[in-house]
């Protein structure tokens, strides 16, 4: 279970591909390096998409789990390039 405290929360419930990553890409821009973004999603594709997206963007997926039928992701902002 999550031990992380988020600096920002993105609720992407009900959104389908590609909107969860599109929204996450937008929101994470406002964070500082090392800050944590919590994302809630319901699209099952997000289970594969957020790890891939985090890897591509130099951010770090700290942890994800399911909670009350929803998917919860914690992503730590990496160095900006």
């Amino acid at each position: 279970m999550a031990e992380y405290t988020e600096d920002k929360l993105l609720d992407a419930s009900g959104l389908l591909c590609p909107m969860p990553v599109v929204k996450a890409g937008k929101v994470i821009r406002d964070l500082e390096e090392g800050q944590i973004l919590k994302i809630i999603a319901t699209d099952r594709g997000a289970i594969a998409d957020f790890p891939a997206w985090a890897d591509d963007t130099g951010n770090e997926l700290l942890e994800w789990h399911e909670e009350d039928g929803k998917l919860v992701f914690y992503i730590k902002k990496g160095e900006e390039d």
């Binding site: 591909c17 590609p18 990553v21 599109v22 996450a24 890409g25 937008k26 998409d49 891939a52 997206w53 591509d56 963007t57 130099g58 390039d81």
Partner: peptide, 12 residues
């Protein structure tokens, strides 16, 4: 459109 927006969101 889906692939282009997802790619842009991933920094491409």
């Amino acid at each position: 459109l889906i692939l282009a927006t997802a790619g842009a969101a991933a920094g491409l």
